[in-house]
Design a protein around this nucleic acid. Sequence first.
RNA 1: GGCGACGUGGCCGAGUGGUUUAGGCAGGGGCCUGCAAAGCCCCGUACCCGGGUUCGAAUCCCGGCGUCGCCUCCA
Length: 458
Amino acid sequence: MLQLHDTATGEVRPLELRDEGRVSMYVCGPTVYDLPHLGHGRFTLVFDVLRRHLIASGLAVTYASNITDIDDKIIEKAAAEGRSESAVAAEFEAAWWEAMDRLNVLRPDEIPHATAFVGDMVAMIAELLDRRLAYATSDGVYLDTSQVDGYGLLAGQPLDSLRAGARVEGNDEKRSPLDFALWKTAKPGEPVWPAPFGDGRPGWHTECVVMSLDLLGEGFDLHGGGLDLKFPHHENERAQAVALGRRFARHWAHNGWVMVEGEKMSKSLGNFTSLTDLLAKADGRAYRLLVLRSHYRAPIEVTADTIADAERGLARLDSLARRMELTSPVGPVVLHGDDTLDPSAVDRYLAFMDDDLQTPQALGLVFELIGETNSALDADDADRASVLGPTVVALAAAMGLTVDAAIDEIDDETLALAGERDTARAEKDFARSDEIRDQLQAAGWVVEDTPEGTALRR
RNA sequence: GGCGACGUGGCCGAGUGGUUUAGGCAGGGGCCUGCAAAGCCCCGUACCCGGGUUCGAAUCCCGGCGUCGCCUCCA
């Protein structure tokens, strides 16, 4: 069984499931007001890998991840560009899924949109007000965090410290700086939903509680997201559920930062790199490889160099796939119980992954196996290679990493040159064949000699 | 100010109280090749500094230095 770090306890401990054999997980998704950035790419990859590992282990997984389609930033953007909030959200949600596809991230089983759950949020806020766990001010409804058992659990810091550091804001109607908005009363021109406590819109922390409990039920197994969501977002989600006496997530997982040039990538620093831009320039698999190469809780450095490094690593994987004509399965892989693969390799792989997702070691294993497979092929040990090759591809696929053995489209002119080179080589006219090779390489082709003659790829 | 993480060979990046190595990239040598490419084999002998614990520490403890982060919108 998977041992996974739990942010609530600060320890690596077993992921204890509510229902045997079934995993329910909720991962906080994006607010769609701009193009996805590298941080989005990392958290989706990390939790995609976790999801795939649970599936590979033979578990049935329900994966829910939301789209926040109403929020201050969406409103600001819509106002600035003179269009509707829903148009802004639709545009950037489309960009989101496009990026997810390029990263080979599996679609969530449930994709709740905040605007579809406002009624449920209103009901929850009304209940909190009824039970005097929340209070109304002139600009909204706030949760009274002093009544929440164990508030500060996820922050991992004393409440005094949190209070001392809390942002100073003009709102002196709040009873504590830690109290947060459940509902924001409408200002002129803003989108508005009806509510008995004043028309307006939900606060950010409210949607995920309502949607996760609605879709996955009380005491669902795992709640995840980027490290920055730990506090205050996840703390505040939990606070609402706990205040109402509902069992919330049993286990919390958070992934580490994306660093750019040694600094955390963040809004305030303005050093954002859009995922869309990266994917336009680089193989989406390279970013996955980069993410897998570090432990999910460690920071990763994304630069042109580290991406290029990953792309060269990918070439080694693809080279084996081409050599054996192997292709990756389309959907998620179930390793558990697959006796066509090398059993020792699968056991080692699962053991690494079960130990708090040690993807760096799992990936190291895959690369070791690539070497072993090539050796077997070099030694004409077809039996061994025919087990190891598919094992390599299956383990890579279990982490969501596909192989690319595709033959590049070659235009007729280039094909003719390759043919001419083969003729020259047959006639031992090496001056001519090398001349053609130089020409092909200058055009961007990698030229390899095979028993079938000149082979070309990009 | 209050918390916390990290510092590994040219680069990225794991790991661990003591046998034999993470892995990748780059580099060197060899095999293969007409020459290459791809592939295979071999190679560097690393663990911020100073103390301490120990038979033995890069791994544990203390101190220092450095980097980064959280306490505020953020994945």
